[in-house]
Design a protein around this nucleic acid. Structure first.
Lengths: 182, 182
DNA sequence: AAGCATTACTTGAAGTATCAACCTCACGTA
DNA sequence: TACGTGAGGTTGATACTTCAAGTAATGCTT
């Protein structure tokens, strides 16, 4: 004898009867495998890169990303809110992060002349130097973990897929699920 | 006149000369775009699911994953180390996590009879109930963010890609880059 | 020009993650 | 049996993230 609803929690419904039309749409067995692979890879990858950068550059991956954005910006500076938007993190998180990077001497702040509420985060020479010194090792880690293992088609596919997912989650779409407000 | 090495930090070398054979292999423009899409999507997605679950289930995504693993295990229990390995997190992190889930009454610990060092993490009825109640909403969030936006081919491709990346980062391969020790 | 909602950003507290150090027990070996 | 090594797991300090609440400047509206 079987329990009536063996494994109906988590992601999958393995009961023999199909879910009711108005009930939850569980993930299929295939979808579930895809999702687990994604979670596992994403977890391992973020972990791996965090460790690599913590060891070689003395900062977590997100912080490294902030320095990169600044390095790519004109005059190596960016408004706090804009930087937060680019890095896909909250302004609060950025505030704390910049505070820490400032302590390291890798970033400094400067008031925005045209908007007295505004702040620029600016990559210092020292910060640039850290980036220059550690970038090769980091790129290498990314290569080894991702690009060297994928065919060109897979790389292309990954790009398309992630672009779609990212677009669907942009805060710009925040109101898109509240159509009654439009 | 151009600076000699414009933008050689971060991920890309945009200088007109190719990198020396023994120098860092920067990401190509295409690779860079793929990588940014990945980082953005992964950041946004993890954030989105964390918020969704924090709001609806009172716990972060990782913790939810632990409950799911336990729910799927025989007798709803798993040894700590095994659970950590499945969830791709460190034992230390798991220890802290289980301590918190224990406080919530969703998990309890039990000594392993055959190995006095060992501990089982066990999903309580209350924990199971939380899962049962919140799983539909979570699956829905995953669907909306990922599966509903991808074609079947893209889903398949995503699964393959992430499986490859995950495999490359398994701790089991930890010694693979130390061939001189074999 | 005086409200008043909004934008830009910061702060502090509480939650979670990481790292190294630690304890206990298991197991092979002498 | 005693020793040494390693496995299973926890702990506490420190770092990072999140959330809610805060300050201050902007700009619209009347």
């Amino acid at each position: 004898m079987f329990k009536k609803s063996f494994r109906t929690v988590g992601y999958m419904n393995t009961a023999s009867t199909p879910a009711p039309a108005d009930g939850p749409r569980w993930l299929s067995a295939d979808e579930q495998l895809v999702w687990r692979s994604y979670i596992e890879a994403a977890t391992l990858l973020e972990d791996h890169l965090d460790r690599q950068l913590q060891r070689d550059a003395g900062m977590p991956h997100v912080y490294y990303g902030l320095l990169v954005k600044l390095a790519e910006s004109p005059r190596r500076r960016m408004r706090m809110t804009e930087l937060a938007r680019y890095a896909k993190i909250t302004r609060s998180r950025l505030s704390h992060a910049v505070a820490r990077l400032e302590k390291n001497g890798w970033v400094r702040r400067e008031d925005c002349p045209s908007d007295k509420r505004g702040q620029f985060a600016i990559l210092t020479d020292e910060g640039y130097e850290v980036l220059r010194r550690t970038a090769p090792g980091h790129v290498n880690a990314v290569r080894q973990a991702v690009f060297d293992r994928l065919t060109p088609e897979q790389q292309k596919s990954l790009g398309e897929i992630m672009r779609i997912v990212a677009e669907g989650l942009q805060p710009s779409e925040a109101g898109a699920d509240l159509p009654w407000l439009r």
